[in-house]
Every structure is written in structure tokens, then in C-alpha cells.
Design a protein around this nucleic acid. Structure first.
Lengths: 281, 281
DNA sequence: CGTGCCAGGTGCCAT
DNA sequence: ATGGCACTTGGCACG
């Protein structure tokens, strides 16, 4: 990588401070923001939030992440989701008040504010995060929809899709079509096992379409998903709705080929430890 | 390695490596995991995921967070949510393969795997995250429920709550009671403005209770929320359901007192810059 | 462990 | 901006 050239430094590299003073952290924050870097601050802090709800978090050592797009995240040592946060588009400010470093992130609409007060900063880092953000995902509901449109016979012999995202008084219908007899069919797609909510959703759509049509021809409702819970099945039967078992397809190229190089030379490896840093597959 | 003293070190402090070799990162990872630290790895990497769905992310500089509870997060420079992740309870392993550092996080039930392959590591940090994880939140649906139970007259004069989380064939009912005439009332609570989904939920509960009762006495359905969308209101009217505007209360102590110290001495402050590091309120 | 549901859900895309 | 909904939703509480 072009890390050491003299021309404009594409990747200035991380900036890290150990046990900095609050003033030093303030400087570093300003510089990192100016460079569009992602900032992490690790230290003993309290967190206060007020906005859509309100919350308070007592003192502890946590990791604060400030992104250049205005996002803020406060992470503890457990859970995947942050204990406190601020959405993208917020404004970050830092100041020293009462001997503590206060990082305040605010936004409007809705009006909300996050205050992280550091009694002590153990480490500051400014990280120039760049590179591709685009993610390819397969196995989504969109994939399932494509599958249904390509092979409507998998739903039911004689099924003919007529529209997707068809509007109704109850909202957009995933796939709308008709069966071999020309009866309207409302199809609701779910990429995974469904509960009562999906049945309710399908029912709303079916009723909306039924009301649109003055004729006595009944409208069929079809739930396409890998499986349903017991309660959902009972609701389906009670409401005269149908279920077709189908799962979103897995894309061909991502399946097994990625890890087929199981016999190559591993340049180096650590000794196999009980729970981490293994070198074998 | 036990960083210095022999007695248990209360806060060993962060461990940071700059542009480490893959082998050095491997060692540091192992040690950090052993100490129960939170690990951050910043570097140029690709990410592959396969499990409930599948995804692929091309090369770029990103921040990987590994928590001692098994969570893994891959963050880019934008968005509050990680671009890839692995839930708590996963197992993290690291190895060097084909000259790249591969961090693999796996779990079972469901079977899924996250592979982060670092072409180059810019920075490694092991952070001993500790301290309170408990968060007090107000303004939730539970607060709204308490409010309704304390002051049922705010819902409607003569309303009498009889049960909360009352079971029905369609699921648990937030608040179940009866009005001044003794007619059953199903109440669904929402902490914020609601759409069609909440109306559908309420309708399911009302119908379930109606089916339970053989008598001809109709069951009332009541949606309690701050507001409703147009479409939701139309659905309410069509289904003969009712709406009462009510928002969850804000707790008394968290409101304004937190920031009342607006005239204290600010020990130090940076010069006010355009968009960051301000020292005033 | 599965089922059901709230969440400061977030994010995406439509009007 | 608001609305409607999918999401590797996450997280919790309960059977």
C-alpha cells in the first residue's frame, strides 16, 4: 500500500494517545474530525441521554465511537448493540467542564441529546476509515420474490403474478396475481419463520383487496415463508388463509467455494491455544 | 502476560500495537481474550458472512470490534449499525492464512460464520472494559402502562383495568378491562406514533376475545398512543376501533436538573472551532 | 430453547 | 420530511 510516499497522504494512519489530558483529547478530536476520521475514545465515563426517551448510565470504562457522518456509539463489554447511541446526522461537540471531558452529540427532529462525560480518558484514537461500504447480501426477501416471479409454479400450479408492491388501502402487497381459475391471490413473502404478525399483515391485505372488489368472488391470501409457528398456523386456518413453504434461495457463488483452499501454506501461526488464536480450520 | 505487578491489577490499561505484524496481532489477541478485554482491530480487510443470510464485502479500511461475550462488529465510517456482525455467544478464532490475518467468528443455532481477512493491520487495541452495564430508561411502553393503570380515567371515564398481559389466542393483551357499562375493552399501548401494524395487532386481539365470548356483547378495541398515521386512522374507523391520544410520561428527576450547572468554572477549554470542540453550552 | 413482542429499534425507499 | 416495512433485526420475558 502507498503508506510511505511523499504525495498527498491517502491514508495518514491512525493517531493514538495514551492517557491523554482532556485538553489533548480535545485537540485530537478536533483534528480527527477535520480529517474525516473515525474516533474512538476509551475511558471512565457516565452517559446521559434525553430525546425520544431518556436514560442514565453510571460510571464505568466504555468505548465511545464517533463517526464522521455524525453517528455516536457507546459500547460496554457485552452485547452487540450499543448501550447508548446517536444516529447519523448528529453534531458532535467536545468541551471540558468541571474537570471532565464532555462529548455532546445532538440532533433535531427529533430533538435529542447524548452526553458522555469522561472522568478519565485511557486512550484516544483517530482512525481514517475508508474503502468500500457496499455490501452484497443474498437470502433476503427480495431474493425470495425473484424466485417466486421466476418460478410461480413453485407457489402453485397455474399461479400467475400480475404485480409486485401493488398498492392497497392496507399497504403495498408483495406479490399480487391470480390462480388457475382467475381468482385474485394476495401473496405475502417472509424470508424466515413467521409468527402472528405476518398473518395479520396478510389478512389486512386480503381484506383490503376484497373491499376493493364488489363482486362476490373471494380473494385468496397466501403466505410464502420457510415455516410458521403453531399460533400463526392456527390464525391462518381460522382466517381461511393458506401457507406455502419456501425459503429464499442461496446464491451459487458464495456457498462453498470461499473456503476450498484448505491445504495451502499458512505463512505463520501461533500455538493452538484453548479458545483463541488457532491456526487450523 | 501479567502486565507488571503480581497482585491482580485492577485496571491493566489498554494495550495498543501500531502496524503490527500478523503474528504480533495474533499474540495480542490471545492475551487480550485471556484477560477478558474488548479488542479493536483497525486495518484493510474483506468480510464474508454466511448463515441466516450471506454477504460479501470488498476490501477497505474498517474497524473490527471483538467483545469478550462473543460479539463481533465490523464498522465502516458511516451508519450507526455495523456493516457485518456476529451475535453474543459466538466463538472468535484468529489465524494467519495465505499471508492474511483471518479472524473467524462462528456460532451454532443458527449456524453462521463471519470471516474478516486482514491484508494489513494498522492498529490493534486491547481495552479492559469494565463498570456498570445497567441502564435506566424512561419513556417506554412500560411507563405508559403504569400511567394507564394508575389513572384509568385518562383512558376513559369509567374504565376499569382487570388484567395486564392477558393471554388470548392471538397473543398477550397489554391491558384488558371493561368500560362503565361492563363491556370488555382490549387496550393496546404504543409509546410512539403508530402505523397500520399496531391497528392490525389490536384487531387480532379484539377478534380473539370476541371469539372467546359466545354472547353477542361486542368487544371494544382501544389503541392508546401519542398519535396515529392517516392510514392507521382509516383502518381504525373501518374496523370500529377507537383511539385515545396519550404519550408515555417523562420521569421527574431526569428532566432538567442534569444540566442546571451552567455557570460553573470550566477548568480548561479549547478555542471555539467551527464545528467541534466548543466550550460553551 | 422456541414464541411473542417491544425498541430511543435502524435502514431503505416510496410518496 | 413522513410513511410503510424489511432486517443476519437485537434484546427480554415467559412457557
Amino acid at each position: 500500500m502507498d503508506r510511505g510516499t511523499d504525495a498527498d497522504p491517502p491514508t495518514p494512519g491512525p493517531t493514538t494517545l495514551h492517557a491523554p489530558t482532556h485538553r489533548e483529547t480535545l485537540w485530537a478530536l478536533e483534528e480527527a474530525f477535520g480529517e474525516g476520521a473515525l474516533v474512538t475514545v476509551f475511558g471512565r465515563c457516565t452517559v446521559e441521554y434525553e430525546g425520544r426517551a431518556a436514560s442514565s448510565l453510571g460510571p464505568g470504562d466504555r468505548l465511545l465511537i464517533l463517526k464522521p457522518d455524525g453517528s455516536a456509539l457507546v459500547h460496554t463489554d457485552e452485547n452487540q448493540s450499543p448501550v447508548n447511541w446517536q444516529p447519523p446526522g448528529s453534531e458532535h461537540r467536545a468541551a471540558v467542564r468541571d474537570g471532565r471531558l464532555r462529548v455532546r452529540s445532538t440532533r433535531e427532529n427529533p430533538d435529542e441529546r447524548l452526553d458522555v462525560r469522561f472522568e478519565r480518558v485511557h486512550q484516544f484514537s483517530g482512525l481514517p476509515v475508508t474503502g468500500g461500504r457496499s455490501l452484497e447480501v443474498t437470502g433476503s426477501e427480495a431474493d425470495l420474490k425473484r424466485r417466486v416471479l421466476e418460478r410461480p409454479d413453485l407457489v402453485e400450479a397455474g399461479f400467475t403474478p400480475l404485480a409486485t408492491e401493488r398498492e392497497s388501502a392496507a399497504g403495498p402487497i408483495d406479490v399480487y396475481g391470480e390462480d388457475a381459475e382467475g381468482t385474485p391471490v394476495v401473496v405475502e413473502l417472509k424470508r424466515k419463520r413467521v409468527g402472528p404478525d405476518a398473518v395479520g399483515q396478510l389478512k389486512r391485505y386480503v381484506e383490503a383487496v376484497s373491499r376493493e372488489r364488489a363482486d362476490d368472488r373471494s380473494v385468496r391470501g397466501l403466505l410464502v415463508a420457510p415455516s410458521v409457528t403453531d399460533r400463526a398456523r392456527a390464525m391462518l386456518e381460522h382466517d381461511g388463509l393458506e401457507f406455502v413453504a419456501m425459503a429464499p434461495p442461496v446464491s451459487e457463488e458464495s456457498a462453498e467455494s470461499a473456503e476450498s483452499d484448505s491445504s495451502s501454506d499458512s505463512g505463520e501461526s501461533s500455538d493452538p491455544s484453548p479458545s483463541s488464536a488457532e491456526s487450523d480450520d
